[in-house]
Design a protein around this nucleic acid. Structure first.
Lengths: 200, 200
DNA sequence: ACAACCATGTAAGTAGTTACATGATTTA
DNA sequence: TAAATCATGTAACTACTTACATGGTTGT
């Protein structure tokens, strides 16, 4: 499970409390593995039971910051997990399903809803680029810095990919709206080519 | 929820049974929204209760194919869903977490495990390209064909992106292994640059 | 008629989301 | 000292996964 190991990583970078972890996630690892504070508190309890972290408890049992620190066993587990073989997660994106659906029930005003999503991707791209300029502007000496930069660059590339998809989709949908029936020789367009053998 | 609408889409393309849906998912929509047969059967029951599909029941209650067909209300729902506004799903990929973790606890032999993943992405890319050659080789007259091609091309671009990440990561990790300590002026490398203000 | 397989389904568990609760600290 | 906020947590729910079960069909 990734959340637990994302937490171990963050705590290894430096020890902190649950709420601080949640805040750090919101502007760092959370870009690529989001987590709410509820998840984080639950998972911290599990990590502690596993003996991977310890908490320096405050005076009372509740309402006060409880700082967590990684134990040697936790670092060991993290090292094991890093080198373990793993398969890629399949893509699972609504956009892909929506486009297929629109191909069947369209035309609709899908283009408008994609515009919104496009804007969201542009904001994310902008954010990543500002982080890149801030943290990775100069020479990149350390191994750690280079690895973190690679993660960020992949995030940037991913946003560019989705921006490209959104733009292509919008163009395609609008074009189809404007010329609902058309073709070189007129008529109502070729009849969906030859009956293919169940295309993908 | 996407699965229900992916099923509606598939059934709108043409009516079929649960097991046939599962098979079609394995070589089509399932590339971008995977689903097991258990999920599919459960969801079909829900769709039927909603009045979005109907099933032509076989003679006995069990053990025989039960063909599902979309009802007008189902098509209506699908049309509504397509145009509804939606946010992009955040990226959530273990790879990103693993690279951050390796930056903290490394060096490990992460490169070896990434090689495996790289191979998986190459296979997927190859598959998509074969599908593209098979289904989208000639002119692309129909709106439906163009939308489906766009989905596939995005899948291809996505695999290329991950292949690039895997290769960059492997190169970076190996390079760091070979020259664990080095620099223009020697020593054990610059001490992680200046203490920045908590880089991303 | 028996084995192998196919189609449908149940059950239990994991991960993540959303809504709400409570005690402590800070601020007006 | 009351209100607002912070830190920690509980509860209920949804989506997905994994393992298993059962009745029907097909092939030998």
């Amino acid at each position: 499970m990734s959340l637990s190991h994302a937490l171990l990583t963050a705590l290894a970078e430096h020890a902190c409390s649950g709420s601080e972890l949640a805040a750090r996630f919101d502007r760092s690892i959370g870009y690529f593995w989001p987590a709410t504070h509820q998840q984080i508190y639950r998972e911290l309890a599990v990590l502690e039971k596993e003996g991977w972290v310890e908490s320096l408890p405050p005076e009372s049992g509740r309402g006060r910051k409880r700082v967590y620190r990684v134990l040697p066993a936790g670092l060991e587990e993290l090292r094991r997990w890093v080198a373990a073989p793993r398969d890629p997660r399949p893509i699972r994106d609504e956009m892909m399903v929506v486009l297929r659906a629109e191909a069947v029930v369209g035309p609709t005003d899908l283009a408008a809803s994609i515009e919104g999503r496009l804007e969201r991707h542009r904001e994310k791209l902008d954010l990543y680029r500002r982080i890149e300029a801030r943290d990775f502007a100069g020479a990149m000496p350390s191994r750690e810095q280079r690895l973190r930069h690679l993660v960020l660059r992949t995030g940037i590339a991913s946003e560019l990919l989705w921006i490209d998809l959104c733009q292509s989709a919008i163009a395609l949908l609008k074009q189809a709206d404007e010329e609902p029936t058309e073709g070189a020789g007129g008529g109502n367009g070729p009849p969906a080519a030859a009956p293919r053998s169940a295309p993908s």
